[in-house]
């Protein structure tokens, strides 16, 4: 079943067509990667899906409903959550608070309930806290819960961003280079972790440069270059595709990822 479908999606920045008529779909329960050389338009694609940038042409549907006219927070409420290539953790908040913030779409307490300190608001907040502690335990950051996010090493901040969106219990996670800045072991751990999430019913779309990880982990891969989709398929199919080898891996050469 297709969860997220892009149909002829384009993005024009002045004279530059950053994304040009890209169509592909992401199936429920897949780990789907978008790969392509630097500047190919991968992050732009993420920004189009999540509503950060308006789509110039084309259509994006999620569970059969068009979402490309919605605002960022409305898209999040549908269960589409993302991480950022350049980390956007909440630096001056604790690790625990960072993760609690991710529960926003699943909770209801509004200004009035909160200010009056009504019991159900407090109960919900306590549940969020408990849930956050569980998630932190799962990703191995529990012992750092009272640290400020800015004091965490880079790799841990990446994990923190993922932990944050896990709290939303969304339907699809968009991970923008989750392995960037991680060492080999950490990347390995991340792969295992992402697999577990899929088994738990999530769908993942990721942009990644670590080819080893992508080829081993992903069910499907979409390759884009200069904003145009040049291939789409399983890792084996993509690896055999001539255009991909030429455009992305270089003519006759081996890649250095």
């Amino acid at each position: 079943m297709e969860l997220l479908v892009l149909k002829g999606v384009s993005k024009q920045f002045g004279g530059l067509r950053a994304v040009d008529g890209v169509s592909f779909d992401i199936k429920q329960g897949d780990i789907h990667a978008i790969i392509g050389p630097n500047g190919a338009g991968k992050t732009t694609l993420f920004n189009l899906i999540t509503g950060v940038l308006p789509v110039s042409e084309g259509e994006i549907t999620f569970e059969g409903k068009a979402i490309h006219h919605l605002r960022v927070h409305q898209i999040a409420r549908l269960g589409i959550l993302r991480t950022f290539q350049n980390l956007k953790t909440f630096n001056e908040m604790t690790v625990l608070q960072n993760v609690m913030a991710g529960r926003y779409t699943k909770t209801k307490t509004e200004l009035g309930t909160a200010a009056l300190g009504l019991p159900w608001g407090k109960r919900e907040f306590a549940e969020t806290r408990k849930k956050a502690e569980e998630v932190l335990e799962k990703v191995g950051l529990y012992h750092l819960r009272e640290s400020l996010a800015k004091n965490l090493p880079y790799g841990r901040q990446r994990i923190l961003e993922i932990a944050r969106i896990l709290m939303a219990e969304g339907k699809i996670l968009l991970l923008d280079e989750p392995a960037a800045g991680l060492n080999h072991n950490e990347t390995e751990e991340l792969s295992v972790f992402l697999r577990k999430l899929i088994d738990g019913g999530l769908t993942i779309l990721l942009v990644e440069h670590d080819m080893q990880m992508v080829m081993r982990l992903c069910d499907r891969i979409t390759v884009i270059n200069y904003g145009v989709k040049i291939a789409d398929g399983t890792p084996e199919e993509v690896q055999r595709n001539k255009e991909v080898i030429e455009a992305y891996l270089g003519k006759g050469g081996t890649h250095d990822a």
Partner: peptide
Amino acid sequence: IALETIRENEEAAESLGV
């Protein structure tokens, strides 16, 4: 918490549904 996320990073706050 939502208010503090706005202070820290508006783009990330919005991406979490705020």
